[in-house]
Design a protein around this nucleic acid. Structure first.
Lengths: 229, 229
DNA sequence: TTTATTAGTGTAGATTTTACACTTAGTAAA
DNA sequence: TTTACTAAGTGTAAAATCTACACTAATAAA
């Protein structure tokens, strides 16, 4: 039984972020080229180290903000990766977080001020250390989470079309969905508001825009409703 | 961009284990009375600190074995708890793991050699630090995991009756299940073997014993089967 | 031999999921 | 202004799954 903490080993704790975006057709992740050794010049998740006066959520937000200028997005802790030699330079553990970004809203700030680059999930370079494993685990978690919570909307503009939403789920779940069945399902959930506004980009006819109604959703949850796609 | 790791803060990393058992009627957790300050004399999860030459899975197994004599059980990393003042004595983070134990098989060694005690999930003392939160999160994860993976069997003896299995799921999911529907569902999964043996304890008639057929399950998974209860 | 107790079994109705094809609205080109 | 083009939008029948429900069977103890 341990009494005196001072005999215990301390470790460096990194926080690495899998940042997801969605752009019309593809689920994407935001990567940076590492500019220091080891693995200098190779692609990497965004990361940093936990400081002693912050918790992990704060660290993840700080790191995301520092490297991208982005604030206030959906983030969730994923897993603590701890293999002894995962970082050849020194013993570090890394707590992975994933974040959901609305690409369109943040494209400017990202490309103007930071050296990050978006890659399609279906075709991204291999990453340093165990970062590939982190991405795979993040995708699995994202699949589960988007099926049980209405967080997919975080990846879309505030106003979106049914086709965008469907395409998003198809991409995340990696399966083709039937248009009518999908719309019927979504409508039956009754957590969207249909706007009197059309998106005219995707077709001549134009398609109606919808918004996620968070207030309605929360009220329904109070009454026992649970989202399930 | 960080270059020299030596300027970064290091932290103490604890590993705490939520150890689940199941005993006829109730889901239980194994707790110990803390015998050092702070919070001496209060009930606590089993924990210890990560050593620099082991990964978290190893640490969790070592701690479990050291405090209970138990080896080779199902364990899964849960979450990394990191609130700055969660341990008033010193800044520590804690990675929670949960374990599934077949109580009957381990009762002897536990009560003979160690000072741990089983408590019903429905009625256990309040715990030190953020350990109550850990337990709640572990229950939620257990609920999800047992619905999507055949790990419930880890909590039962190798040979078990349908009623035991049903009672187990009822307890974990916290809802009453219909006997016939449950059995039909389980049978349709086709991953159990019925033995020519009866358990005569629970009734005069006796009830047939079953075993989980891991080989068959794995073969089915290969072919695209997925467990879902 | 009777009694008491839990094990074990099937089905009809309700609900949910799936598969599937044509019309409409609007733009752009002729 | 007519025509052609493109993606949006809509409903239903069949299949699959889920749910509710009650009696008989086997055995040990009295």
């Amino acid at each position: 039984m341990i009494h005196d903490y001072s005999f215990e080993d301390k470790v460096l704790l990194a926080v690495d972020c899998i940042i997801f975006g969605f752009d019309e057709e593809d689920l994407q992740i935001l990567l940076i080229k590492r500019d220091f050794e080891p693995e200098k010049g190779n692609w990497s998740l965004m990361g940093g180290f936990l400081k002693k006066d912050e918790d992990l959520d704060q660290a993840a937000n700080r790191i995301l903000h520092h490297l991208t200028g982005i604030n206030n997005v959906y983030m969730e802790q994923l897993y603590n990766f701890s293999k002894v030699n995962r970082d050849p330079a020194e013993r570090t553990l890394s707590v992975a977080y994933y974040a959901l970004i609305n690409i369109a809203e943040h494209r400017q700030e990202l490309t103007e001020n930071y050296s990050a680059k978006w890659f399609k999930i279906s075709d991204y370079p291999s990453l340093i250390f165990d970062h590939d494993q982190m991405v795979q685990k993040a995708i699995a978690r994202l699949r589960y989470r988007t099926s049980t919570n209405p967080i997919g909307f975080e990846l879309l503009p505030e106003k979106f079309t049914m086709r965008q939403l469907q395409k998003l789920y198809e991409t995340i779940l990696n399966e083709k969905l039937d248009k009518r069945n999908f719309i019927n399902k979504i409508k039956s959930l009754d957590i969207l508001v249909k706007l009197n506004e059309k998106d005219m980009v995707s077709s001549r006819k134009g398609s109606f825009l919808y918004k996620f109604d968070a207030k309605k959703y929360n009220a329904k949850v109070e009454e026992g409703f649970s989202f399930r796609l």
